[in-house]
């Protein structure tokens, strides 16, 4: 990476490069996806993922056509957006949800000028839109290997505390850690299978698609802060979408800072806000909003900002 020029977003990237990186992200998502499909059954997950990706690509093509931009809808970025969005949806939700969620995600990217100019992670914007608009659907979770609905361990925690969570796992802490590691709990499709997420992270790090700073500081902060607040820190990092968010969402190129030291601040900020939302806000999980909030200050974190975001040179024509 050292022979690249480092700048803060917004920036325009080489197309071949984008395609390679985006494909790497998609491939690293596969282990966790397969885990989710096995745990929740393919009928509840596969159509959702497929439709979400198709909708994202179609929306991207539509916007590029409408705005008369170069047609690059197959460069992989739309596929990753749709894929990520589907993975942070609960399994078994009505199929129109991922379709409009993906459309909104792509809209949020194009409205700022397309890939490279978007201040927010598109998939997370899509998810935030769905959570705010259809909270009833987005908070109904399927029980693993079953068709009945259940609560996520975090939702149980925010309502009944740790004893309630242990009640879900026959009252034993080690059973809880083990089941949560293998993904035997209610949750989003992509977030439950921790082993798959770790495999994906290893792949991303080994291929140098991402650097270690953000995932490590993010997870470390979550571990430490929840431990200081008296929550079982292992439960804290295994539950909710923290790992999924830290590995795949917070490491997005466009919306996270470039310099190592600002990456560390960014990761810390994400983790801290995440735990604060879990403990003190009216939501069991805060990964989505923690990362989106840190996206806002990303341009400020890089101290080599060349021009403020949103500054557009007046065209002379």
């Amino acid at each position: 990476m050292s022979n690249y020029v480092i700048t803060a977003s917004p920036h325009i990237r080489n197309k071949i490069n984008t395609a390679f990186l985006m494909n790497m992200v998609s491939i690293s998502l596969l282990p966790a996806t397969i885990g989710g499909i096995v745990i929740f059954g393919w009928t509840n997950t596969l159509p959702l993922i497929a439709l979400s990706i198709i909708s994202a690509v179609v929306s991207e093509a539509l916007f590029q056509k409408l705005l008369k931009l170069p047609m690059s809808y197959l460069d992989g970025s739309a596929i990753v957006t749709g894929f990520l969005l589907a993975l942070c949806c609960p399994p078994g939700i009505p199929l129109w949800l991922p379709v409009i969620g993906s459309f909104f995600a792509i809209f949020s990217k194009q409205v700022f000028g397309g890939l490279g100019h978007n201040p927010f992670n598109p998939a997370l914007i899509g998810r935030a839109f769905l959570v705010l608009s259809f909270p009833a659907h987005m908070t109904s979770w399927l029980k693993p290997f079953d068709v009945v609905t259940t609560s996520t361990p975090l939702a149980v925690f925010s309502e009944k505390g740790m004893s309630g969570v242990l009640g879900l796992f026959q009252g034993s802490v080690s059973t809880m850690h083990k089941s949560m590691f293998w993904g035997i709990r209610g949750g989003c499709i992509g977030e439950v299978f921790i082993l798959g997420l770790l495999l994906g992270l290893a792949l991303l790090l080994l291929t140098k698609t991402i650097q270690w700073y953000v995932p490590v500081t993010y997870m470390g902060t979550v571990f430490l802060v929840s431990w200081m607040l008296g929550m079982d820190p292992i439960f804290s990092i295994l539950s909710g979408g923290v790992m999924f968010g830290a590995f795949f969402m917070a490491t997005d190129y466009v919306t996270s800072p470039m310099l190592p030291q600002s990456k560390i601040i960014y990761g810390f900020g994400c983790g801290f806000i995440n735990v604060m939302i879990r403990f003190f806000a009216n939501m069991p999980e805060g990964t989505t909003f923690a990362i989106l909030l840190m996206n806002v200050i990303t341009p400020m974190l890089d101290n080599r900002i060349k021009k403020p975001v949103g500054f557009v040179k007046e065209k002379t024509s």
């Binding site: 409009i100 409205v111 839109f129 705010l132 608009s133 259809f134 909270p135």
Partner: peptide, 22 residues
Amino acid sequence: FEPALMFILPPGAFLVIGIEIG
């Protein structure tokens, strides 16, 4: 029909006014 609640929440107001100004 299931309405998208976000539009009657504060973020929806900002979204709509932004698009209309655009």
